[in-house]
């Protein structure tokens, strides 16, 4: 009986997760149109945004972040790494105080993120899919 309840609870957990994120806007992971990077695996995107790597295939890529507390930023990390803002803060605390990596540079708005990526090949970021322009390349869509 207990086992059954547990299984029911466990099976329903992902339901809550999807119910939460379905309301969020669709997000696009983007680089500049001129970037030599044409595709990234999920693992590569995860490594770039969690400070485990700074380049892909010899091309240096610097991740950008929306401001702390931003709903799109929170949704992005929930989808990419399954981590809450609290957990991301712990994650970065581990890396910062190890001297191993710095968290992504923070921009002020999705508009600034888009402008920066449009104007430089060295950045990677995420913006609402609806805002994608022809000056950027979409590498991954989260919905």
């Amino acid at each position: 009986m207990i086992k059954r309840i547990l299984i029911t609870v466990l099976l329903s957990l992902p339901l809550f997760a999807t119910a939460q994120t379905a309301t969020a806007e669709e997000l696009a992971v983007i680089v500049s149109k001129n970037s030599p990077v044409t595709s990234l695996t999920d693992a590569e995107i995860q490594q770039l945004f969690s400070g485990q790597s700074r380049s892909v295939g010899g091309n240096s890529l610097q991740p950008l972040d929306l401001p702390g507390g931003d709903a799109q930023r929170n949704a992005f990390y929930q989808q990419l790494l399954g981590r809450s803002p609290d957990q991301m803060r712990s994650h970065w605390a581990r890396l910062i105080f190890t001297g191993k990596a710095r968290p992504p540079r923070e921009v002020n708005s999705p508009r600034e993120m888009k402008t920066m990526i449009e104007s430089s090949e060295s950045f990677i970021g995420y913006i609402p899919a609806a805002d994608v322009s022809d000056k950027v390349k979409v590498l991954k869509l989260f919905n």
């Binding site: 803060r89 712990s90 605390a93 581990r94 105080f97 190890t98 191993k100």
Partner: peptide
């Protein structure tokens, strides 16, 4: 080891 002093990290 690297963050033994940073209690927030564990």
């Amino acid at each position: 080891s690297q963050y033994t002093q940073v209690g927030y990290a564990y």
